[in-house]
Design a protein around this nucleic acid. Structure first.
Length: 285
DNA sequence: ATGCAGTCCTGTAAGC
DNA sequence: TGCTTACAGGACTGCA
């Protein structure tokens, strides 16, 4: 399930493979994705060159010349890869951009939670994402504004981390990992976090995402980078998907509960319920 | 205004 | 063996 680190890996892989290439043909399947595909978009994309590939939170932005952009969201199972044009199409490929040089950019998405939206000259991709109220990424969110946001609500802190309007780029895996690193129970109400805990959580989120980017993201099932390679960060997860296994810090069994319909993994020793603070985590080599 | 539950979707795995 | 059921969750909608 691609979150910010996985999307960043895809974008880093795609850049050298796509920059400067001319789009010679566009094909779209008939299955409905997150955004319905306007039949006129293909014709509008053909003849443009790919200028740059950007990333904003979990969105991939393919910027064309002359100016226009294709916004892509990978959803749960989306894959955006570059392949030789002659390669046979896999199942669930919904969008195919044929490029000069004999390569394709293909969007494949089994569960179809992802999708692509073409933006012409009318609106820039920055404006489009601003319009959808996408919040800042953890590095661009000031400690002051973050504290103000979390201390103003009783929502469980896990839900706040997943709220893309408040802080963007974090999904279920890295929310659990950030809370574990910060030693905060996922059900803690936002307003119960003091300044130290709140700032600690923001810093933990940044660190967890940075480490995952270094590991080319987390591959649990479907995720692959832009070159088709899997990530490696799944081997470094402390709590996510490890229910019943020992905590990497204290060996207590990792628990799983459901918060706003999402699995939440945590260590009951390292992440006590709000109010009770511990010292540093016990680290067992 | 806020926060929660329901919805979409399909492959996988567990249970009978 | 073959069927049914539960589960995974990002982002959106609708309701309380």
């Amino acid at each position: 399930m691609p979150e910010l680190p996985e999307v960043e890996t895809v974008v880093r892989d795609l850049r050298p493979a796509l920059a400067g290439r001319l789009v010679t043909d566009v094909e779209h399947g008939d299955k409905r994705l997150r955004h319905p595909w306007d039949p006129s978009w293909g014709e509008q994309i053909i003849g443009r060159k790919i200028a740059t590939i950007e990333r904003r939170a979990k969105w991939i932005v393919i910027c064309f010349s002359p100016a226009a952009a294709l916004l892509v969201h990978l959803g749960m199972t989306g894959q955006l890869t570059v392949q030789p044009t002659e390669c046979s199409l896999a199942d669930h490929v919904h969008l195919r951009l044929q490029l000069d040089g004999g390569v394709d950019l293909r969007f494949r998405d089994i569960r179809r939670f992802g999708g692509a939206e073409f933006l012409g000259e009318r609106i820039s991709w920055e404006e489009r994402l601003l319009e959808s109220c996408l919040g800042p990424e953890p590095w661009d969110l000031s400690e002051g504004i973050w504290l103000q946001k979390i201390q103003n609500t009783t929502r469980p802190v896990k839900s706040i981390l997943l709220d893309q309007k408040t802080i963007s780029g974090i999904g279920n895996i890295y929310a659990d990992e950030a809370l574990h690193k910060a030693g905060i129970h996922p059900q803690t109400p936002g307003k119960s976090l003091d300044k130290t805990a709140g700032v600690g959580l923001l810093l933990s989120a940044r660190t967890v995402l940075e480490e995952a980017i270094e590991g080319r993201g987390t591959t649990l099932r479907d995720y692959v980078g832009g070159s088709g390679l899997k990530g490696s960060h799944q081997f470094r997860l402390a709590v996510y998907g490890r229910e019943g296994e020992p905590c990497t810090s204290c060996r207590e069994k990792v628990r799983r509960i459901v918060i706003s319909g999402r699995s939440s993994h945590f260590c009951p020793i390292c992440q006590p319920i709000a109010g009770r603070k511990r010292g540093g985590k016990r680290v067992i080599p």
